[in-house]
Measured scan of single mutants.
Amino acid sequence: MTFKAIINGKTLKGETTTEAVDAATAEKVFKQYFNDNGLDGEWTYDDATKTFTVTE
Rank of each mutant, 00 (worst) to 15 (best):
M1F: 14
M1G: 09
M1E: 10
M1S: 10
M1V: 13
M1W: 13
M1R: 08
M1L: 12
T2A: 07
F3Y: 12
F3H: 05
F3D: 06
F3P: 05
K4V: 12
K4E: 04
K4P: 06
K4W: 10
A5W: 08
A5G: 03
A5C: 15
I6S: 03
I6A: 03
I6P: 00
I7N: 01
I7V: 10
N8W: 11
N8E: 07
N8A: 11
N8S: 09
N8H: 11
G9F: 15
G9S: 11
G9V: 13
G9C: 14
K10C: 14
K10D: 07
K10E: 09
K10I: 14
K10V: 12
T11S: 12
T11N: 13
T11W: 15
T11R: 09
T11Q: 10
L12R: 09
L12Q: 10
L12K: 10
K13R: 13
K13Y: 13
K13P: 05
K13W: 14
K13L: 10
G14M: 15
G14Y: 15
G14F: 15
G14A: 12
G14S: 11
G14T: 13
G14K: 11
E15V: 13
E15H: 08
T17E: 07
T17M: 10
T17N: 04
T17V: 09
T17F: 14
T18V: 13
T18I: 15
T18E: 02
T18M: 11
T18L: 12
E19V: 15
E19W: 15
A20R: 03
A20L: 02
V21G: 06
V21I: 12
V21K: 11
V21P: 14
D22W: 00
D22R: 00
D22Y: 02
A23Q: 07
A23T: 05
A23R: 12
A24S: 09
A24T: 09
A24P: 05
T25P: 01
T25E: 12
T25N: 06
T25M: 10
T25G: 05
T25I: 07
T25Q: 12
T25S: 11
T25A: 13
A26W: 02
A26G: 00
A26M: 02
E27M: 13
E27R: 07
K28Y: 06
K28E: 08
K28H: 07
K28C: 10
K28G: 07
K28N: 06
V29T: 10
V29K: 09
V29W: 15
V29M: 11
V29I: 14
F30W: 02
F30M: 03
F30P: 00
F30A: 00
K31H: 05
K31C: 05
K31R: 14
K31L: 07
Q32M: 09
Q32H: 07
Q32F: 03
Q32N: 07
Q32W: 05
Y33F: 13
Y33W: 15
F34Y: 07
F34S: 04
F34I: 09
N35P: 03
N35F: 14
N35T: 13
N35G: 12
D36K: 09
N37R: 14
N37S: 12
N37T: 11
N37D: 05
N37W: 15
N37F: 15
N37L: 15
G38P: 03
G38S: 06
L39W: 15
L39T: 05
D40I: 14
D40V: 14
D40M: 13
D40T: 13
D40R: 12
G41T: 09
G41A: 09
G41Y: 15
E42T: 12
E42C: 12
E42L: 12
W43D: 00
W43L: 06
W43Y: 04
W43E: 00
T44R: 08
T44F: 09
T44P: 00
T44C: 10
T44S: 12
Y45M: 00
Y45A: 00
Y45G: 00
Y45S: 00
Y45I: 00
D46M: 02
D46A: 00
D46W: 01
D46L: 03
D46K: 02
D47I: 07
D47H: 11
D47A: 12
D47C: 06
D47T: 05
A48T: 10
A48H: 08
A48C: 08
A48M: 10
A48D: 11
A48R: 10
A48Y: 08
T49N: 06
K50P: 00
K50H: 12
K50E: 02
T51G: 01
T51S: 04
T51P: 01
F52H: 01
F52K: 00
T53V: 08
T53Q: 05
T53R: 04
V54I: 14
V54G: 02
V54T: 02
V54Q: 03
V54F: 15
T55L: 06
T55H: 07
T55M: 07
E56G: 05
E56W: 07
E56M: 13
